[in-house]
Design a protein around this nucleic acid. Sequence first.
DNA 1: TCTGGGGTCCTAGGACCC
DNA 2: TCTGGGGTCCTAGGACCC
Length: 410
Amino acid sequence: MRTIFHVDMDAFFVSVEELFQPGLKGKAVVVGGQKDQRGVVSAASYEARKFGVHSAMPLRTASALCPHAIFLDGHPDRYRDYSHKVHHVLTQFSPLVEMASVDEAYMDLTGGERLHGPAMRAAHALHETMKRTTGLNCSIGIATSRMVAKVASDQAKPNGVLWVQAGSEARFLAPLEVRKIPGVGKVTEKRLREIGIRKVGDLAGLDEDFLARRFGQWGLALAGKARGTDAGAWFAGQVGDHQDQKSISHEHTFDVDTSDPALLESTLARLAEKVARRLREQGFFGRTIHLKLRYKDFSTYTRAHTLAEPTQLDQELIAEIRQLFRNTWKRGSAIRLLGASVSGMQEAEGQLNLLDGERKAKARKALTAADKIRDRFGEKMVKLASGMQGDFGERVHENPVGLPGKAPKQ
DNA sequence: TCTGGGGTCCTAGGACCC
DNA sequence: TCTGGGGTCCTAGGACCC
């Protein structure tokens, strides 16, 4: 029997902002952007939540519900920073720690009684250490499985601890709304409601064959979750097992929908460059390039193309995604969002012929140099030719790095 | 009141191969 | 001389999470 902790930081983004700006404490604060911007709420303070504001809500809606709220742009660097601090605190309690996102983690404390005493005492010590060293509050769920621990930490919010003892999982889950089960979202909730299922207990009582017929494989997993037996694939495995990243993506929603080809193509190039840069930073090569395109009416299309050889080069990603874009875009239609992503990641290039390999090695060297200059002097210092407005395309090949006047030999 | 950006996983059909 | 049957790869879409 395992002892799993799920540690979830309370109103994480807002709380970090409060550390930098203590005057925000106790006020209605919304992190995610300005009130008149396109975008959604990333995090809301408990004060703002009283007015019905919650994450994923459009900023404009939040502003209508809570006009006096303070709207802040997010600071991803700060959150990453504090996420590391949180991680460091957790490692003092167990070597088996797995950050599930920037503000939550699973910990395996099985057999930790000798070191920390009973689970409840360890949890209180963790609370104190966390507050003392990071200034942040967290909520802690304790159970025999990840899923139940996660649900428990949610029930413990804010700043609480909830321990679901072995054997009482089903009893704990039964009275909760099905929506509380990780993986049950709006759509599944509605489908369940249609057959009269609102509570986890209703779900646990259903016939498995019926669930499987109605919801496929998902139905079976759902039944397991409802009983707290934790069969779901994404919850399997040892806490701390590292999973390789599967994809890298960047996307952009325009402030105003646009059908300007120059703007669209330069934006796409910029997104592809960001993706390529991260591939190089992480030492990966990607083989499948994906375009994402969302029109004014929110209809969304994705198109993908798989290369013969994986790449991490700007030029190749840009050329591929531009081709996808030109094949997909209904010319003249206003576009709301563009996205570029890469998948099929591997750590080394496939077999290349020698000539090709040399050419690419040179391009890669130049790009890495450009990446470093960007790090030191900021994005604007090294502007890629392809990212310049109205200058998409041919110059990419002349000057792939964009160091003014210094095109690397190809 | 219009709906971000970064991800993961699942489904399903067609191509292709044995 | 109607339409077997896996297995794997590729593509598109969608649900869901923070």
